[in-house]
Write a protein that binds this DNA or RNA. Structure first.
Lengths: 155, 155
DNA sequence: TCAAAGTAATGCGTACACGCACTAAGATAA
DNA sequence: TTATCTTAGTGCGTGTACGCATTACTTTGA
């Protein structure tokens, strides 16, 4: 079959499978797969603006806000005004949030393990590289160097 | 970086990028990326039960139902009772649906083209193979032949 | 034959993923 | 300084992805 037509389907199937299994793995902790991703970003980056968090997820700012409001209500996340920029809000994990994330990370181990158990290390790297290339080639904000004939750049 | 931790993130980023770009490409036709997937399955498989359609998407039966109800209201899809099984319903594209799908397929060409433009044919195949392997290894319903020591099988 | 087990669809509730319009605040330029 | 532009966040509406409980029908087995 033509791989060009099959990539989107295989990608969709893989992502949804991962999402379902992750949701199931985190459900005992009362957390969803996407909430885990958000907490992972906050955990590795410390306090950051909602905009920055949305860029790193990656997700839509309005989606991120809804998730933060929800997690704030559960005491896992803290939102404070930015010290100098009156528009922005800084989001960060609370102490409880950090502890919860530690548990989640361990709970997620089995999934990450299963996913690459039958895959060579080389193949795993190759998969990451191809996925990044795929994402990049679809990103309208990515600049293809060779085609830049004038002096403009995405900021 | 450890590819084991990076695969889920790269997969998520790639899928969401594909989904956003597809939604944008199909929006002028009043159809979403997921509705396109559903229509593609009906287009290639003809009439089938909702259960069968859900398996092929792959998606949850209740999600598929909601989408079918919506598309039926727009005249793109038809739902009739199964001739012999009183529980089941057969879903199929209407004539209008088939025509719409033809337009969508062409509209999606640019995305499929962009996605593999900078990717060798070998890499595209490799990507599909790795994604399928990933999906399979996470699927609790998949049976790993070597580990089957007793006579049982998933039906 | 008739009760028990299994299956397809439905309805409901929650969470995500967006786009869009809007507000408020910072940045820039005349 | 003031008018303009840009940017961060918010609120709202629609569609998708589930899980779970329920209903209606089919299949199986005693």
């Amino acid at each position: 079959m033509d791989p060009q037509e099959e990539i989107p389907l295989a990608l969709r199937a893989a992502y949804l499978m991962l999402h379902r299994q992750s949701d199931a793995a985190f459900a005992p902790y009362g957390v969803t797969a996407d909430q885990f991703v958000l907490m992972a970003r906050l955990s590795e980056g410390g306090a950051m603006t909602q905009k920055e968090l949305a860029n790193r997820m990656p997700s839509d700012p309005s989606t991120v806000r809804a998730m933060l409001v929800l997690l704030e209500g559960r005491g896992l996340v803290r939102r404070e005004r930015h010290p100098t920029d009156g528009r922005a809000r800084m989001a960060a994990l609370t102490k409880v949030g950090r502890r919860k994330f530690g548990q989640l990370w361990k709970a997620g181990d089995s999934i990450r393990g299963r996913a690459v158990a039958e895959m060579s290390s080389d193949d795993a790297c190759k998969l990451v590289q191809l996925l990044k290339q795929f994402t990049e080639s679809l990103d309208p904000n990515s600049v293809v160097p060779e085609t830049v004939t004038e002096g403009w750049r995405q900021k």
